[in-house]
Design a protein around this nucleic acid. Structure first.
Lengths: 121, 121
DNA sequence: CAGTATCCCCCACGATACTG
DNA sequence: CAGTATCGTGGGGGATACTG
């Protein structure tokens, strides 16, 4: 299924539409916790409890929601092991791994931009 | 002024803090219209009226707000010419220009990610 | 351990009207 | 032309309590 608005034919509009996937892509990583979670999973913090312990201030609710959205967007996989006590492991998909170097670019750009960094949380 | 939480000393937390600038950087480009505006300005659409004409559905209010925030974040400059009728021109700063190639990476990543692209607007 | 279930607040965003 | 001013809404996010 591919549904693209083809009505506007002028140059500027077509360039704008090309820009839309950019917005869409950025939205996948927008949100308070998405990127931190992806990063930490890439570093081996791949379970609910580990993430909760390592991420300051996140609530269980937000952790759950963020993980679900990342899963829905195809950025992480969720594997349930039928054990007692239950164990669930998260892993990055190839798509998310492709994102990591880009994140690094963004981070370096951010550092260049902001000489004064304030972590309020 | 540099205010960094130094309380937590373990490895994971320090890595997490490093991740925070990433979140911060992403926030600068988050928002419904920020990226489209930056992109269009880079393509020469550097006036209020031009942007309004070229961006579908944006309201004057949102255009104003977005431009102000981009200016406050140091991503664009705003130059007022004392003429009648009034003329205002926007231009990307070096920081925003550094961002453009990254945007391109993100866009390509987004395209690889989403085989089915839907532009709803 | 790995989550749900409620309740609530704030703010990004939109619609509409007006202006130096 | 390039904006303000005002009002309204949805959902992203938080606090807290409970559960298979």
């Amino acid at each position: 299924m591919t549904k693209v608005k083809e009505s506007s034919t002028n140059q500027a509009s077509r360039k704008f539409l090309a820009e839309c996937d950019l917005t869409h892509a950025v939205r996948l990583m927008s949100g308070r916790w998405k990127l931190p979670i992806l990063y930490l999973i890439s570093k081996g913090q791949n379970r609910f409890g580990m993430l909760k312990k390592v991420i300051p201030n996140i609530t269980e609710r937000m952790l759950t929601l963020s993980l679900r959205e990342l899963e829905d967007d195809g950025l992480i996989t969720r594997t349930v092991f039928a054990e007692i006590p239950p164990r669930v492991e998260y892993a990055l998909t190839e798509i998310a791994m492709d994102l990591l170097p880009i994140c690094d670019h963004i981070r370096h750009w951010g550092l260049k931009h902001k000489q004064s960094i304030i972590f309020t949380d």
